[in-house]
Design a protein around this nucleic acid. Structure first.
Lengths: 173, 173
DNA sequence: CTTCAAACGGACTGTCGGTCCGCTTGATAG
DNA sequence: CTATCAAGCGGACCGACAGTCCGTTTGAAG
Protein backbone atom coordinates (compact mmCIF):
# COMPACT_ATOMS: atom_id res chain seq x y z
CA UNK A 1 0.00 0.00 0.00
CA UNK A 2 1.32 3.41 -0.93
CA UNK A 3 2.15 5.79 1.89
CA UNK A 4 -0.59 8.27 1.04
CA UNK A 5 -3.08 5.44 0.97
CA UNK A 6 -2.08 4.37 4.47
CA UNK A 7 -2.31 7.90 5.74
CA UNK A 8 -5.76 8.38 4.24
CA UNK A 9 -7.01 5.10 5.59
CA UNK A 10 -6.07 6.23 9.05
CA UNK A 11 -7.58 9.68 8.54
CA UNK A 12 -10.87 8.16 7.42
CA UNK A 13 -11.14 5.82 10.39
CA UNK A 14 -10.35 8.66 12.79
CA UNK A 15 -12.94 10.85 11.08
CA UNK A 16 -15.62 8.20 11.57
CA UNK A 17 -14.71 7.98 15.24
CA UNK A 18 -14.99 11.72 15.60
CA UNK A 19 -18.40 11.87 14.00
CA UNK A 20 -19.64 8.94 16.04
CA UNK A 21 -18.34 10.53 19.22
CA UNK A 22 -20.02 13.80 18.32
CA UNK A 23 -23.29 11.96 17.83
CA UNK A 24 -23.63 13.41 14.35
CA UNK A 25 -24.96 11.63 11.32
CA UNK A 26 -22.22 9.60 9.72
CA UNK A 27 -22.84 9.90 6.00
CA UNK A 28 -19.91 9.02 3.80
CA UNK A 29 -19.90 12.52 2.36
CA UNK A 30 -19.30 13.89 5.82
CA UNK A 31 -16.72 11.27 6.59
CA UNK A 32 -14.80 12.17 3.46
CA UNK A 33 -15.02 15.84 4.25
CA UNK A 34 -13.94 15.40 7.87
CA UNK A 35 -11.06 13.22 6.79
CA UNK A 36 -10.00 15.72 4.16
CA UNK A 37 -10.19 13.23 1.34
CA UNK A 38 -12.43 12.68 -1.65
CA UNK A 39 -15.40 10.37 -1.44
CA UNK A 40 -13.90 8.07 -4.04
CA UNK A 41 -11.02 7.43 -1.69
CA UNK A 42 -13.34 6.17 1.02
CA UNK A 43 -14.89 3.68 -1.35
CA UNK A 44 -11.60 2.64 -2.89
CA UNK A 45 -10.31 1.75 0.57
CA UNK A 46 -13.35 0.23 2.24
CA UNK A 47 -15.62 -0.82 -0.60
CA UNK A 48 -18.84 0.26 1.03
CA UNK A 49 -20.35 1.72 4.14
CA UNK A 50 -20.61 -1.77 5.55
CA UNK A 51 -16.94 -2.46 4.93
CA UNK A 52 -15.97 0.77 6.62
CA UNK A 53 -17.79 -0.05 9.83
CA UNK A 54 -16.61 -3.64 9.77
CA UNK A 55 -13.00 -2.52 9.60
CA UNK A 56 -13.43 0.03 12.33
CA UNK A 57 -15.05 -2.52 14.59
CA UNK A 58 -12.31 -5.01 13.82
CA UNK A 59 -9.71 -2.44 14.82
CA UNK A 60 -11.45 -1.65 18.09
CA UNK A 61 -11.89 -5.34 18.82
CA UNK A 62 -8.21 -6.19 18.56
CA UNK A 63 -7.73 -6.28 22.31
CA UNK A 64 -10.52 -8.78 22.53
CA UNK A 65 -8.99 -10.92 19.82
CA UNK A 66 -5.75 -10.88 21.75
CA UNK A 67 -7.59 -11.94 24.86
CA UNK A 68 -9.11 -14.89 23.07
CA UNK A 69 -5.70 -15.96 21.87
CA UNK A 70 -4.20 -15.60 25.33
CA UNK A 71 -6.87 -17.51 27.20
CA UNK A 72 -5.65 -20.15 29.57
CA UNK A 73 -7.14 -23.39 28.21
CA UNK A 74 -6.74 -24.99 31.61
CA UNK A 75 -9.43 -22.74 33.06
CA UNK A 76 -12.99 -24.10 33.04
CA UNK A 77 -14.99 -23.05 30.00
CA UNK A 78 -17.45 -21.19 32.22
CA UNK A 79 -14.75 -18.99 33.66
CA UNK A 80 -13.36 -18.24 30.24
CA UNK A 81 -16.84 -17.40 29.02
CA UNK A 82 -17.46 -15.02 31.92
CA UNK A 83 -14.14 -13.31 31.32
CA UNK A 84 -14.72 -12.93 27.61
CA UNK A 85 -18.22 -11.52 28.04
CA UNK A 86 -17.04 -9.10 30.67
CA UNK A 87 -14.45 -7.71 28.35
CA UNK A 88 -16.94 -7.60 25.49
CA UNK A 89 -19.29 -5.63 27.71
CA UNK A 90 -16.53 -3.14 28.35
CA UNK A 91 -15.89 -2.83 24.65
CA UNK A 92 -19.59 -2.34 23.95
CA UNK A 93 -19.88 0.25 26.70
CA UNK A 94 -16.97 2.21 25.33
CA UNK A 95 -18.30 2.03 21.76
CA UNK A 96 -22.04 2.22 21.93
CA UNK A 97 -22.38 4.44 18.89
CA UNK A 98 -20.06 2.25 16.86
CA UNK A 99 -21.92 -0.90 17.83
CA UNK A 100 -25.20 0.68 16.83
CA UNK A 101 -23.86 2.01 13.54
CA UNK A 102 -22.20 -1.29 12.76
CA UNK A 103 -25.38 -3.21 13.38
CA UNK A 104 -27.26 -0.84 11.15
CA UNK A 105 -24.73 -1.05 8.36
CA UNK A 106 -24.42 -4.83 8.54
CA UNK A 107 -28.10 -5.52 9.10
CA UNK A 108 -28.19 -7.23 5.75
CA UNK A 109 -26.52 -10.53 6.54
CA UNK A 110 -24.93 -9.55 9.82
CA UNK A 111 -23.81 -13.09 10.42
CA UNK A 112 -21.20 -12.61 7.72
CA UNK A 113 -19.22 -9.96 9.58
CA UNK A 114 -15.79 -11.41 10.39
CA UNK A 115 -15.65 -9.92 13.88
CA UNK A 116 -19.09 -11.18 14.80
CA UNK A 117 -18.20 -14.54 13.36
CA UNK A 118 -15.08 -14.79 15.47
CA UNK A 119 -16.98 -13.92 18.62
CA UNK A 120 -19.72 -16.35 17.74
CA UNK A 121 -17.31 -19.19 17.08
CA UNK A 122 -15.57 -18.55 20.36
CA UNK A 123 -18.71 -18.32 22.47
CA UNK A 124 -20.16 -21.37 20.76
CA UNK A 125 -17.06 -23.38 21.62
CA UNK A 126 -17.14 -22.31 25.24
CA UNK A 127 -20.82 -23.09 25.70
CA UNK A 128 -20.41 -26.41 23.93
CA UNK A 129 -17.55 -27.29 26.24
CA UNK A 130 -19.54 -26.44 29.34
CA UNK A 131 -22.81 -27.98 28.16
CA UNK A 132 -22.35 -30.35 25.23
CA UNK A 133 -26.05 -31.25 25.41
CA UNK A 134 -27.26 -27.78 24.41
CA UNK A 135 -27.60 -25.96 21.09
CA UNK A 136 -24.46 -23.91 21.61
CA UNK A 137 -24.59 -22.19 18.23
CA UNK A 138 -28.04 -20.83 18.89
CA UNK A 139 -27.30 -19.86 22.47
CA UNK A 140 -24.18 -18.02 21.35
CA UNK A 141 -26.30 -15.88 19.05
CA UNK A 142 -28.62 -15.21 21.95
CA UNK A 143 -25.81 -14.23 24.27
CA UNK A 144 -24.22 -11.96 21.68
CA UNK A 145 -27.56 -10.31 21.00
CA UNK A 146 -27.24 -8.83 24.48
CA UNK A 147 -24.64 -6.46 23.15
CA UNK A 148 -26.99 -4.75 20.75
CA UNK A 149 -26.11 -1.07 20.74
CA UNK A 150 -29.58 0.17 21.60
CA UNK A 151 -29.88 -2.31 24.44
CA UNK A 152 -26.53 -1.34 25.91
CA UNK A 153 -27.61 2.27 25.76
CA UNK A 154 -30.86 1.43 27.56
CA UNK A 155 -29.33 -0.65 30.31
CA UNK A 156 -25.96 0.89 30.95
CA UNK A 157 -22.77 -1.11 31.23
CA UNK A 158 -23.12 -2.09 34.87
CA UNK A 159 -26.51 -3.70 34.56
CA UNK A 160 -25.44 -5.24 31.26
CA UNK A 161 -22.43 -6.90 32.83
CA UNK A 162 -24.38 -8.23 35.76
CA UNK A 163 -27.22 -9.53 33.61
CA UNK A 164 -25.03 -11.08 30.96
CA UNK A 165 -23.13 -12.95 33.61
CA UNK A 166 -26.40 -14.18 35.03
CA UNK A 167 -27.48 -15.27 31.58
CA UNK A 168 -24.21 -17.05 30.86
CA UNK A 169 -24.36 -18.72 34.24
CA UNK A 170 -27.86 -20.00 33.62
CA UNK A 171 -26.91 -21.33 30.21
CA UNK A 172 -23.87 -23.23 31.41
CA UNK A 173 -25.20 -24.32 34.79
CA UNK B 1 -62.54 7.32 8.60
CA UNK B 2 -63.98 7.82 5.15
CA UNK B 3 -64.78 4.71 3.14
CA UNK B 4 -62.15 5.40 0.48
CA UNK B 5 -59.57 5.87 3.20
CA UNK B 6 -60.41 2.47 4.68
CA UNK B 7 -60.22 0.84 1.30
CA UNK B 8 -56.85 2.40 0.55
CA UNK B 9 -55.46 1.48 3.94
CA UNK B 10 -56.28 -2.13 3.21
CA UNK B 11 -54.88 -1.94 -0.32
CA UNK B 12 -51.61 -0.55 0.98
CA UNK B 13 -51.16 -3.24 3.63
CA UNK B 14 -51.92 -5.95 1.10
CA UNK B 15 -49.47 -4.40 -1.36
CA UNK B 16 -46.71 -4.51 1.25
CA UNK B 17 -47.45 -8.15 1.90
CA UNK B 18 -47.28 -8.92 -1.79
CA UNK B 19 -43.94 -7.21 -2.21
CA UNK B 20 -42.54 -8.89 0.89
CA UNK B 21 -43.76 -12.26 -0.30
CA UNK B 22 -42.21 -11.68 -3.71
CA UNK B 23 -38.91 -10.86 -2.04
CA UNK B 24 -38.75 -7.56 -3.86
CA UNK B 25 -37.49 -4.32 -2.47
CA UNK B 26 -40.24 -2.59 -0.55
CA UNK B 27 -39.75 1.10 -1.26
CA UNK B 28 -42.73 3.27 -0.54
CA UNK B 29 -42.89 4.32 -4.17
CA UNK B 30 -43.39 0.70 -5.13
CA UNK B 31 -45.87 0.15 -2.36
CA UNK B 32 -47.93 3.10 -3.55
CA UNK B 33 -47.77 1.90 -7.14
CA UNK B 34 -48.69 -1.68 -6.26
CA UNK B 35 -51.57 -0.47 -4.12
CA UNK B 36 -52.80 1.83 -6.88
CA UNK B 37 -52.65 4.92 -4.69
CA UNK B 38 -50.49 8.02 -4.55
CA UNK B 39 -47.47 8.17 -2.33
CA UNK B 40 -49.00 10.92 -0.28
CA UNK B 41 -51.79 8.57 0.70
CA UNK B 42 -49.34 6.11 2.17
CA UNK B 43 -47.82 8.79 4.35
CA UNK B 44 -51.15 10.30 5.30
CA UNK B 45 -52.29 6.92 6.60
CA UNK B 46 -49.14 5.55 8.21
CA UNK B 47 -46.97 8.58 8.89
CA UNK B 48 -43.71 6.96 7.90
CA UNK B 49 -42.11 3.76 6.74
CA UNK B 50 -41.69 2.76 10.36
CA UNK B 51 -45.37 3.32 11.09
CA UNK B 52 -46.36 1.24 8.09
CA UNK B 53 -44.39 -1.79 9.20
CA UNK B 54 -45.46 -1.37 12.79
CA UNK B 55 -49.10 -1.45 11.78
CA UNK B 56 -48.64 -4.43 9.53
CA UNK B 57 -46.86 -6.34 12.27
CA UNK B 58 -49.55 -5.38 14.75
CA UNK B 59 -52.17 -6.76 12.39
CA UNK B 60 -50.35 -10.03 11.92
CA UNK B 61 -49.76 -10.32 15.65
CA UNK B 62 -53.41 -10.10 16.59
CA UNK B 63 -53.74 -13.83 17.13
CA UNK B 64 -50.86 -13.66 19.53
CA UNK B 65 -52.42 -10.78 21.42
CA UNK B 66 -55.60 -12.83 21.72
CA UNK B 67 -53.61 -15.72 23.04
CA UNK B 68 -52.05 -13.56 25.73
CA UNK B 69 -55.48 -12.37 26.78
CA UNK B 70 -56.86 -15.89 26.85
CA UNK B 71 -54.04 -17.46 28.86
CA UNK B 72 -55.08 -19.56 31.80
CA UNK B 73 -53.55 -17.80 34.82
CA UNK B 74 -53.76 -21.00 36.80
CA UNK B 75 -51.08 -22.59 34.63
CA UNK B 76 -47.49 -22.29 35.85
CA UNK B 77 -45.64 -19.32 34.37
CA UNK B 78 -43.15 -21.65 32.68
CA UNK B 79 -45.87 -23.42 30.78
CA UNK B 80 -47.42 -20.16 29.69
CA UNK B 81 -44.02 -18.93 28.58
CA UNK B 82 -43.37 -22.04 26.53
CA UNK B 83 -46.75 -21.75 24.89
CA UNK B 84 -46.34 -18.10 24.06
CA UNK B 85 -42.87 -18.57 22.60
CA UNK B 86 -44.02 -21.48 20.53
CA UNK B 87 -46.76 -19.42 18.98
CA UNK B 88 -44.38 -16.51 18.47
CA UNK B 89 -42.01 -18.85 16.66
CA UNK B 90 -44.82 -19.87 14.36
CA UNK B 91 -45.61 -16.26 13.67
CA UNK B 92 -41.96 -15.49 12.97
CA UNK B 93 -41.65 -18.48 10.71
CA UNK B 94 -44.68 -17.45 8.71
CA UNK B 95 -43.47 -13.84 8.44
CA UNK B 96 -39.73 -13.90 8.14
CA UNK B 97 -39.58 -11.12 5.59
CA UNK B 98 -41.92 -8.95 7.61
CA UNK B 99 -39.93 -9.48 10.79
CA UNK B 100 -36.73 -8.53 9.00
CA UNK B 101 -38.24 -5.48 7.36
CA UNK B 102 -39.83 -4.40 10.61
CA UNK B 103 -36.56 -4.68 12.48
CA UNK B 104 -34.85 -2.67 9.79
CA UNK B 105 -37.49 0.04 9.79
CA UNK B 106 -37.67 0.26 13.57
CA UNK B 107 -33.96 -0.07 14.19
CA UNK B 108 -33.94 3.44 15.51
CA UNK B 109 -35.48 2.96 18.92
CA UNK B 110 -36.96 -0.44 18.37
CA UNK B 111 -37.94 -0.67 22.00
CA UNK B 112 -40.67 1.86 21.31
CA UNK B 113 -42.65 -0.37 18.96
CA UNK B 114 -46.00 -1.13 20.61
CA UNK B 115 -46.05 -4.76 19.53
CA UNK B 116 -42.52 -5.42 20.75
CA UNK B 117 -43.36 -3.64 23.97
CA UNK B 118 -46.39 -5.81 24.55
CA UNK B 119 -44.40 -8.98 23.99
CA UNK B 120 -41.62 -7.74 26.20
CA UNK B 121 -43.95 -6.85 29.03
CA UNK B 122 -45.58 -10.23 28.82
CA UNK B 123 -42.37 -12.25 28.72
CA UNK B 124 -40.89 -10.15 31.51
CA UNK B 125 -43.87 -10.87 33.71
CA UNK B 126 -43.70 -14.60 33.04
CA UNK B 127 -39.98 -14.85 33.74
CA UNK B 128 -40.35 -12.73 36.85
CA UNK B 129 -43.08 -15.02 38.08
CA UNK B 130 -41.00 -18.12 37.50
CA UNK B 131 -37.73 -16.68 38.78
CA UNK B 132 -38.22 -13.50 40.82
CA UNK B 133 -34.49 -13.45 41.59
CA UNK B 134 -33.45 -12.80 38.00
CA UNK B 135 -33.30 -9.71 35.80
CA UNK B 136 -36.48 -10.55 33.95
CA UNK B 137 -36.52 -7.39 31.86
CA UNK B 138 -33.11 -8.08 30.45
CA UNK B 139 -33.73 -11.76 29.92
CA UNK B 140 -36.95 -10.96 28.09
CA UNK B 141 -35.00 -8.85 25.62
CA UNK B 142 -32.60 -11.73 25.19
CA UNK B 143 -35.35 -14.24 24.58
CA UNK B 144 -37.11 -11.98 22.10
CA UNK B 145 -33.86 -11.37 20.24
CA UNK B 146 -34.08 -15.01 19.19
CA UNK B 147 -36.82 -14.03 16.79
CA UNK B 148 -34.63 -11.76 14.73
CA UNK B 149 -35.63 -12.21 11.11
CA UNK B 150 -32.17 -13.08 9.85
CA UNK B 151 -31.68 -15.60 12.61
CA UNK B 152 -34.99 -17.29 11.95
CA UNK B 153 -34.04 -17.51 8.29
CA UNK B 154 -30.69 -19.08 9.21
CA UNK B 155 -32.05 -21.64 11.65
CA UNK B 156 -35.46 -22.58 10.31
CA UNK B 157 -38.55 -22.73 12.46
CA UNK B 158 -38.03 -26.22 13.81
CA UNK B 159 -34.61 -25.61 15.26
CA UNK B 160 -35.75 -22.21 16.45
CA UNK B 161 -38.64 -23.67 18.39
CA UNK B 162 -36.53 -26.37 19.95
CA UNK B 163 -33.74 -24.00 20.91
CA UNK B 164 -35.97 -21.27 22.23
CA UNK B 165 -37.71 -23.74 24.46
CA UNK B 166 -34.32 -24.93 25.72
CA UNK B 167 -33.36 -21.34 26.37
CA UNK B 168 -36.59 -20.55 28.18
CA UNK B 169 -36.26 -23.70 30.21
CA UNK B 170 -32.74 -22.80 31.28
CA UNK B 171 -33.76 -19.30 32.26
CA UNK B 172 -36.71 -20.39 34.38
CA UNK B 173 -35.20 -23.59 35.80
C1' DC C 1 14.72 11.89 -14.25
C1' DT C 2 11.38 8.95 -16.26
C1' DT C 3 7.64 6.11 -16.00
C1' DC C 4 3.29 4.37 -14.71
C1' DA C 5 0.35 1.77 -11.74
C1' DA C 6 -1.77 3.13 -7.81
C1' DA C 7 -4.31 6.47 -5.79
C1' DC C 8 -7.00 10.58 -5.76
C1' DG C 9 -11.19 13.73 -5.72
C1' DG C 10 -15.38 15.41 -6.62
C1' DA C 11 -18.97 15.78 -10.04
C1' DC C 12 -22.58 12.78 -11.25
C1' DT C 13 -26.35 9.18 -10.92
C1' DG C 14 -30.21 6.62 -9.18
C1' DT C 15 -32.98 5.66 -5.27
C1' DC C 16 -35.52 6.60 -1.47
C1' DG C 17 -38.08 8.69 2.51
C1' DG C 18 -40.72 12.41 3.25
C1' DT C 19 -43.29 17.03 2.03
C1' DC C 20 -46.43 20.09 -0.36
C1' DC C 21 -50.32 21.79 -2.40
C1' DG C 22 -53.87 22.16 -5.84
C1' DC C 23 -57.57 18.96 -7.07
C1' DT C 24 -61.30 15.40 -5.97
C1' DT C 25 -64.82 13.15 -3.36
C1' DG C 26 -67.59 10.98 0.34
C1' DA C 27 -70.72 12.22 3.60
C1' DT C 28 -73.90 15.21 5.76
C1' DA C 29 -77.33 18.99 6.14
C1' DG C 30 -81.06 21.29 4.08
C1' DC D 1 -81.43 15.97 -5.16
C1' DT D 2 -78.08 19.59 -4.45
C1' DA D 3 -74.79 22.27 -2.04
C1' DT D 4 -71.05 22.30 0.92
C1' DC D 5 -66.54 21.38 2.60
C1' DA D 6 -63.43 18.88 5.44
C1' DA D 7 -61.17 14.69 4.63
C1' DG D 8 -58.70 12.57 1.42
C1' DC D 9 -55.99 12.16 -2.75
C1' DG D 10 -51.87 11.95 -5.95
C1' DG D 11 -47.75 12.78 -7.85
C1' DA D 12 -44.32 16.43 -8.69
C1' DC D 13 -40.82 17.89 -5.94
C1' DC D 14 -36.93 18.05 -2.43
C1' DG D 15 -32.84 16.87 0.18
C1' DA D 16 -29.91 13.26 1.59
C1' DC D 17 -27.29 9.56 0.70
C1' DA D 18 -24.66 5.31 -1.17
C1' DG D 19 -22.13 4.24 -4.75
C1' DT D 20 -19.78 5.11 -9.69
C1' DC D 21 -16.78 7.19 -13.12
C1' DC D 22 -13.05 9.20 -15.13
C1' DG D 23 -9.67 12.74 -15.89
C1' DT D 24 -5.75 14.18 -12.94
C1' DT D 25 -2.04 13.60 -9.57
C1' DT D 26 1.69 11.25 -7.19
C1' DG D 27 4.67 7.86 -4.75
C1' DA D 28 8.23 5.00 -5.62
C1' DA D 29 10.88 1.75 -8.55
C1' DG D 30 14.47 1.53 -11.91
Amino acid sequence: MRSDATRNREAILRAVEELLAAGESVSLDRVAEAAGVGKGTVFRRFGSRTGLFQELLAERAERLAARIAAEDPALPARERLFGFLDELADLAGRNIALFAAHERACAEDKYADPTYLRWHTHVTALIAEARPDRDAGFLAHTVLASFDGELVRHLGVDRLKRSVRELAAALTA
